[in-house]
């Protein structure tokens, strides 16, 4: 992979977003900080972003991955909409990662709809960091 190249890798850029009306941002901010500590560039959208705002920000910021935090139970409505907008923008190879209160039974449907991974309560930031590194590494390798 790229590790053999002499050229240093461009830092991974991640959009961290909180859609829906919920204001509980403890998780989103912890993840944003952990990604930064791991050397990634993080753009945090702030609260109550619509799916349209999130997709637009992803395009404008030219991110390598998108992390969505959602705890309110609205994931089955909001996530498919974000996936659809990202596909329309030609960003379906940008992994969309979700963290929050997502019951097991909803995960297969969300993944079918285009969600790359779901991190449930208790997930460690290290796992999130390595997942993003691996996935973005694969995407970059595929693009070369």
């Amino acid at each position: 992979m790229a590790a053999n190249n002499a050229m240093p890798e461009k830092p991974i850029r991640v959009l961290v977003a909180k859609p829906g009306l919920d204001g509980h941002d403890r998780g989103a901010k912890i993840v944003a900080r952990a990604l930064r500590d791991a050397g990634m560039e993080v753009i945090y959208t702030g609260l109550r972003q619509t799916p349209e705002q999130i997709a637009t920000a992803a395009v404008q910021e030219d991110v390598d991955a998108i992390g969505i935090s959602i705890l309110s139970g609205a994931h089955n409505t909001i996530l498919p909409r974000i996936c659809e907008l990202l596909r329309a923008e030609g960003m379906s190879d940008v992994p969309l990662i979700v963290g929050g209160i997502i019951p097991d039974e909803d995960i297969p449907v969300l993944k079918e709809g285009g969600v790359a991974e779901v991190f449930q309560p208790g997930a460690s930031t290290e796992d999130i960091v390595s997942f993003i590194r691996d996935r973005v590494g694969q995407t970059r390798a595929a693009r070369r």
Binding site: G20, L21, R48, T50, S72, G73, A74, T77
Partner: peptide
């Protein structure tokens, strides 16, 4: 419109 998916949930 912003209530979509959130009505009665929490």
């Amino acid at each position: 419109p912003l209530a979509e998916g959130e009505v009665g949930k929490c």
